[in-house]
């Protein structure tokens, strides 16, 4: 393992990451179709789990201990409105006007895929619509900077400048990450930073880029369940994530259906 702790995946392993990514993409699509007012978050979780296992993979979130006291109990994270990330699916019913962020992770043959999206339930406010679109675009801006020879800071700066130009606050307490044999690997991929700084991006690396944008302040709070993170000021927030691998052909998003 190189000195900076970043694992490099072989072409065979990259292939498996693409498969894992496609499985995550399919699970995301299945869950997206099931989001309706009245749906319980638990139903979305069960649907995702069936989809992932049905495709021959294992949910990566279930049982995951991220330096937390409690292992994460579900397959997906369902975070509604002011919940930022790591919401735990349960009895909560989706209401018209809610926005929900869904994060899905799967392991296929030992390689990981991790992706997330934010979606409106029924009819949502134009404000919320705008937040979601901006967050989605900030991820795209970050992805556009990914290539061998660039630095992590290039991604971070791209996400930050776009998000702030749109008037949103970038969450700093949670970051994207390397991914591959583990869900969270080196390096950290913050959503804020200076271009030209940070670890060098090299062929064989895989990154999970996940901008989190808040309407209010960037501060977050952890809830008593040990996992759910909410915005400190209760404002709306959105989250998008993709897993990207770096190959000779450049950056490829593994978690979009049908590849690039």
């Amino acid at each position: 393992m190189p000195r900076d702790g970043i694992t490099i995946k072989s072409p065979g392993e990259i292939k498996l990451m693409r498969e894992a990514g496609q499985i995550v993409a399919k699970a995301k699509a299945a869950v997206e179709n099931a989001v309706q007012p009245g749906t319980e978050t638990r139903e979305l979780d069960e649907l995702a789990e069936r989809e992932i296992r049905g495709l021959g993979a294992i949910p990566s979130f279930k049982g995951y201990r991220a330096m937390a006291a409690v292992p994460f109990p579900a397959t997906i994270c369902t975070s509604i409105n002011e919940e930022l990330v790591h919401g735990i699916p349960g009895n909560r019913k989706l209401k018209d006007g809610d926005i929900i962020s869904i994060d899905v992770g799967a392991i296929y043959e030992g390689l990981h895929g991790d992706s997330a999206f934010t979606l409106g339930v029924g009819d949502i406010d134009p404000e919320a619509e705008r937040l979601i679109a901006a967050t989605r675009e900030s991820l795209n801006r970050g992805i556009s900077k990914v290539r061998a020879g660039a630095r992590i800071g290039d991604i971070s700066a791209a996400v930050q400048t776009f998000a702030e130009k749109q008037g949103y606050a970038v969450v700093t307490q949670y970051v994207g990450h390397g991914i591959g044999f583990e869900m969270h690997e080196e390096p950290q991929v913050p959503n804020y930073g200076e271009a030209g700084r940070g670890p060098l991006i090299r062929k064989g690396m895989a990154l999970a880029i996940e901008p989190m944008l808040n309407v209010g302040t960037k501060d977050t709070k952890q809830m008593d369940d040990g996992w759910t993170v909410v915005t400190a000021d209760g404002s709306l927030c959105a989250h998008f994530e993709h897993t990207i691998v770096i190959t000779e052909r450049g950056a490829e998003v593994t978690t979009r259906l049908n590849g690039d």
Binding site: A66, F72, H86, Y174, E241
Partner: peptide, 8 residues
């Protein structure tokens, strides 16, 4: 799943 930022 997002990762918590490591601090000093």
């Amino acid at each position: 799943m997002a990762r918590k930022q490591k601090e000093a």
